[in-house]
Each structure stands twice: as structure tokens, then as C-alpha cells.
Simulated scan of single mutants.
Amino acid sequence: MTRVRVLLVEDDLRVARVNRDLLERDPDVHVVGSAATLAQGDALAQALAPDLILLDVYLPDGSGLGLLRHWRAQGRTTDVALITAADDEASVKAALAQGAFDYLIKPFTGARLAEVVSRHRARRTARGTLDQAHLDRLLGVGTGPGVPEPLPRGIDPHTLERVAQVLAGAPDALSAEEVGDRTHLSRVTAWRYLEHLVRVGRASLDHQYGLAGRPAKLYRARAEDSSGGGG
């Protein structure tokens, strides 16, 4: 699983604490710092070099959009997601134009925050050339050929990525039981996530026939999901 080091820039300490707790439900996510002002956020971004920055817009010493603009002008390409109460169209357009890769309007769900981390991981692990379907998935482009539908009910995005990463890192096909052991999920839960990966084309299903009984189902990552973890 790709480890993700996160910097929070949020002046509401309660909100920052809640977001930290939500993020660190994933054992491979670590919040390395928390800043309450633009100045602190800029200093920590330089000192800690996080993988992902969650940035508020309204801060005591100015706008997070200005800090994002400053980072991009410096050539800093760190993934930055805006997490803010600013829901006006102008703020959203400005954030996206200045290089924000995601934008969450408060209040949001834990699943939506996990999706930010999942998309960040996918961007980091992409290597080599990309076909259009894979690129569309990384960009979060809507429906179309090769682009996955919204996750069905009961499929958590960060759990899905844990399962996908285990599958991608395995040299051989795995059973649902083996994936469950490696992700600390029950066999049935692992099977449900594996079947979803097969449905959306991110995994393939093989059958292993033994001497007696029903054939075992074995799963392996498809080529575009098996390039390994990022740095």
C-alpha cells in the first residue's frame, strides 16, 4: 500500500482534529503536520515535503487560493485538495485553474475524504504511458467507455484501494481468503471487493481446479493496476 504523508492547513482546530482522525483510519496515511495560517502552512510544506496537502480557503492571514498560486509559481507540484466552506463558483474555478486536484465543500463525508487519498494514490502509482480510459480514471472524468461507474453501496473507496494494492503487489493470483488475511478483512468482504474489481476491469478471475470439490477462485490485477507502489 502506498504510504501518504499529509499536511493539513486548517484554522479550526476541531475540524483539523476530525479530519486527522478520518484520514488516519487508513493505517498507511500519516498526518505529518497541521497549520492554522498561510505562513505556517507555507513553512511546513517546505520543511516536511508532504505527499498531499489539504488546504482551507479562509485563513486568518489571507486566502488559501493565494497560497496555492504561490506554490505553483514556485514550481511545487504537490497534490493540493481544497477543503473549505467556500461554495461559490468563482472560488471553485479559481482553485481548479491554479492547480488544485480536488475540491471538497464542508461538510463532507469520510468516504469522500478517503476518495481524495485514493485518487492521490492512483496518480502517484501511474507510470509509463497511459491509455485514455486509465487517464480518465486518474482525472476523475465522468462516465464513458472504460471509466468506472460510481462505487456501489457498501464499497468503501479506501478499502477498495487497499484490496487493489494488495492484488497489484502480488506476483501470483490470490484467493479471497489470502487477500482478506493481508488486508485484515473477512473472506466474504474481500471477495465482494475482488468481484467489484473484476466487474470494472481492474482485476481478472481464474479458476483453479483441484482433485475434488468446487474450483477455487483466484484473482490477479490487470496490467494497468500492477505497476507497484509509488515513492
Rank of each mutant, 00 (worst) to 15 (best):
T78H: 12
S227G: 08
R3K: 08
L104V: 11
A133M: 11
D51L: 10
T84I: 13
V57H: 07
V147G: 06
A203V: 03
S63I: 05
D42I: 09
L23H: 01
S175K: 07
A216P: 00
A43I: 00
A168K: 10
E89K: 13
H158D: 14
L59S: 09
A100W: 07
L13D: 06
Q208Y: 01
P50C: 05
V31C: 02
R153S: 14
L185V: 10
A43G: 04
L113Q: 03
R5C: 01
D21V: 01
D28E: 06
A176T: 04
R25I: 02
V200N: 09
G140F: 14
R119K: 14
Y219K: 00
D172T: 12
E89S: 14
G110C: 07
H70T: 15
A164I: 06
V141Y: 12
Q40P: 00
V147A: 15
D206P: 00
V29A: 01
Q40D: 09
L96I: 15
A45T: 10
A168R: 13
A133E: 10
D206M: 07
L23M: 04
L82P: 11
T2G: 01
D88T: 14
L96K: 13
N19G: 00
L7P: 00
D102G: 09
P157E: 06
A49N: 08
E178A: 15
P145V: 10
G142F: 11
V9I: 13
A190K: 04
R220K: 11
V32A: 07
P27W: 02
M1C: 01
R72M: 11
L13W: 03
P50F: 02
L7E: 02
E149W: 07
E195L: 10
S63F: 12
V18E: 04
Y193E: 06
